[in-house]
Design a protein around this nucleic acid. Structure first.
Lengths: 225, 225
DNA sequence: CCCCGGCCTCAAGAACGCGTAAAGGTCGGC
DNA sequence: GCCGACCTTTACGCGTTCTTGAGGCCGGGG
């Protein structure tokens, strides 16, 4: 599911976007000021950010810079300012697109699709992730170990998929919970413990000392190749 | 040098763009209709395409489709049509941006820079901050020293993350406490001393004389590269 | 000279998060 | 209605991490 972070201090705009985006199958996160936006972005790893420039706490350019410091997520800027100086500033700070308010929802959605499409083409790398003891085929949704196929339940596969798409990276508990169980179960970290135990029994040579499905206590999990 | 393909059937627009782009160091190619545009694109492999939609021979969407068949080069569409249907159509066909005529040259150039930037950063590595004795990978949340990975606890990582995102800059005690422990612990500067001692033991060659995790007495801490 | 504020170090108990097992609960197929 | 597969929930032992207090060091000011 594609996730969108909407940042705006006007509740009615956030509400309108949430309704429209949710109806089209996007997973919507929201923030009402710049600092919390940065926090949510770190936690949730959205696929695209819709950012209003008139935030109460931080200047829009600062928010863009804060995101660009560590992420290349597409950023679509919303603003009431129509002068080109504002557009140039935002785009040169690292924004991907600039839409002036009032905006047409159709157009925004189209620009959002364009931004997401670009973001995706970046990591359509080889759909097979391989470790020393098992192989994950992301396209076929299959896992093989010693030549034999290992049967995974839907939830187990969901976890493996998210991890295999971020090999070597630390994936936060919240991101796993959001992508596998949905945004309403962000605190059910016990699920993760139960399922990681199962996955290790199925995939690790020594489940008590996992080499590939690694826990980073207090932070998340990591898929080591 | 960055190369731009300008496609428009109005000579004065092509001329204006050629002058402006050349003056800014771009290598400019031109075409006046859709078919030759596709030919020039194949021959010249431009880094970005500026495409007018009102071409004499082909519909704009066809040109976009023709390019997208083999290339993921960024496409910026120019058009006199302001209705959202036209924008949606072009963007969904694979365009990256849509600018309505008449357009401001500053804005077009900024959107062009944004498009080129995206094209370049397509597959760069994770953002890493590097010092002479250790390496911080912000996306993977990893720290390596002498090739070996160093394990950090969540609090330790929180500090390193804030510092690494502000390399060389002085970060006040309050900012560190607020970002790692939250706004209710702004006076617990002892936490910082304890954790900086731990981090120096883990990361510095000579923990008693830190070179990278530097204390600025009475003010805060600084991450020296 | 001594005092004091700010810093570093060390250590120990409390609090937290993890892994594991096993017991309910739900759903669809037979 | 029964059964199996899967998901959710509870409970508990254990290791790690966080917090907290005490003591020592250093430099500036009285």
């Amino acid at each position: 599911m594609t996730s969108v972070l909407v940042v705006d201090d006007e509740p009615q705009i956030v509400r309108a976007l949430r309704i429209n985006l949710s109806a089209r199958g996007y997973d919507v996160m929201t923030a009402y000021d710049g600092k919390s936006a940065l926090g949510v972005a770190v936690e949730g790893k959205p696929d695209v950010v819709v950012l209003d420039l008139g935030l109460p706490d931080l200047d829009g350019v600062e928010v863009i810079a804060g995101l660009r410091g560590w992420s290349s997520v597409p950023i679509i800027v919303l603003s009431a300012r129509t002068d080109s100086a504002a557009k140039v500033e935002a785009l040169d700070a690292g924004a991907d697109d600039y839409v002036t308010k009032p905006f047409g929802m159709d157009e925004l959605l189209a620009r959002l699709r364009a931004a997401v499409r670009r973001g995706l083409t970046r990591d359509v790398a080889d759909p097979v992730v391989e470790t020393s003891s098992f192989v994950v085929d992301l396209a076929a949704k299959k896992v093989r170990r010693d030549g034999h196929e290992v049967h995974l339940t839907p939830t187990e596969w969901g976890l493996v998929e998210v991890l295999a798409r971020n090999p070597g990276r630390l994936v936060s508990q919240k991101q796993l919970l959001r992508e596998v169980w949905g945004p309403k179960h962000l605190t059910e970290s016990q699920y993760l413990r139960v399922y990681f135990a199962q996955l290790r029994r199925k995939l690790e040579a020594d489940p008590a000392h996992p080499r590939h499905l690694v826990t980073e206590p207090g932070m998340g999990y990591r898929f080591e190749l």
